Amino acid sequence: MHTGQPQDIAPADLPEVITRYLDAHRARDTATALATFRSGAEVTDDGSTHRGPQAIETWLNRAAGEYTYTIEPTGARKADEKRYVVTQHLEGDFPGGVADLFYRFTLGGGLIENLVIEP
């Protein structure tokens, strides 16, 4: 019976498009990461929202070049067929040096339509 509560899942059980985004982001492969988003997608990170392919590409390039860090998924949850949350552990030369962030994905049409990254 489904209770409507998010369910823990293995990161390996995430939809392919999310795994492709996470792998591309980790490899700093902007073109592959960008291809996982719908044309009208939005990304919210660090309190700023980036809408559409050009703004998301700029965000991806800035995120890849601003700091050096490692990123590792430590957990995943499925809210429903469209909404997933991935917990990522980051370590690097950014302020604080260590962070655990929630990547909240909303899917549509087989692609990412919304991504919110927050502590």
Rank of each mutant, 00 (worst) to 15 (best):
M1G: 13
T3I: 00
T3Q: 01
G4F: 02
Q5S: 09
Q7I: 07
Q7R: 08
A10W: 02
A10T: 09
P11S: 01
D13W: 06
P15Y: 10
V17S: 09
V17G: 13
V17A: 07
T19K: 08
R20A: 15
Y21R: 09
L22H: 11
L22M: 12
D23I: 13
H25L: 11
D29C: 12
T30E: 13
A33W: 10
T36Y: 03
T36E: 04
S39K: 15
G40Y: 14
A41R: 11
V43T: 13
T44N: 11
D46V: 00
D46W: 03
H50I: 09
R51F: 09
G52F: 12
Q54D: 15
A55P: 10
I56W: 12
E57N: 13
T58W: 05
L60W: 11
R62L: 07
A63K: 07
G65A: 10
E66A: 08
E66G: 04
Y67D: 00
Y67N: 01
T68L: 02
Y69W: 05
Y69T: 05
T70I: 02
T74P: 06
T74S: 04
T74V: 12
T74C: 03
A76E: 09
R77D: 03
K78E: 15
K78T: 13
A79C: 08
E81T: 13
K82S: 10
R83I: 03
Y84I: 14
V85N: 02
V86I: 08
V86Y: 03
T87V: 11
E91C: 01
E91N: 00
G92Y: 04
D93Q: 05
G97Q: 02
A99R: 08
D100E: 13
D100Y: 03
F102Y: 14
F105M: 05
F105I: 07
F105V: 04
T106F: 02
L107E: 06
G109R: 02
G109I: 10
G110R: 07
L111A: 05
I112H: 00
E113L: 08
E113N: 12
V116T: 12
E118A: 08
P119Y: 00
